[in-house]
């Protein structure tokens, strides 16, 4: 589900449109709020409060009973609702496979391509040290 949090709402919505969705309703209408982000002293010690982030959340229930929760950084309530819908669908035996295949897998692929490109650009800035040949003359 982490893949969905990294995708744009439009990308998720476009892929969801390709599925014949079962009836569903909002269990929790999209809501914006804050989450306090925590770090650790020294990176690996006791936690401390670093600062907050905006977060949107929603919950969706399928007519067949599955409940999905959607959380994402930012203030895009529609994205939170779409994530919640996907989370509910994934749990359904009728839709789980299709959501993984048609939505999550291609979005994961896109994310990996973006990350691979960024990693390659970063790698080009890695320093190669070499030893100067001493002038013995």
């Amino acid at each position: 589900m982490a893949v969905l949090a990294h995708a744009e709402a439009g990308e998720i919505a476009a892929r969801l449109r390709a599925l014949a969705l079962p009836p569903h309703q909002d269990l929790r209408a999209p809501e914006n709020g804050l989450v306090m982000l925590r770090g650790r002293v020294g990176g690996d010690g006791a936690p401390f409060n670093l600062g907050e982030a905006t977060v949107s959340r929603a919950a969706v229930r399928l007519a067949s009973g599955e409940v999905g929760f959607g959380y994402t950084l930012g203030r895009d309530g529609e994205k939170a609702r779409l994530i919640a819908l996907c989370d509910a669908l994934v749990q359904s035996s009728d839709f789980g496979g299709a959501v993984e295949r048609e939505i999550i897998a291609p979005l994961r692929e896109q994310l990996m391509v973006r990350r691979k490109q960024a990693a390659a650009e970063t790698a080009a800035t890695k320093v190669d040290f070499y030893t100067m040949v001493r002038g013995e003359g």
Partner: peptide, 23 residues
């Protein structure tokens, strides 16, 4: 602005050792 929004809670502490480093 931050004073206008409710707080849902606190995150798990971030793992900086697993950072995808750009620098």
């Amino acid at each position: 602005f931050r004073a206008t929004l409710p707080r849902f809670g606190a995150s798990e502490p971030v793992e900086t050792g697993a950072m995808r480093v750009q620098r």
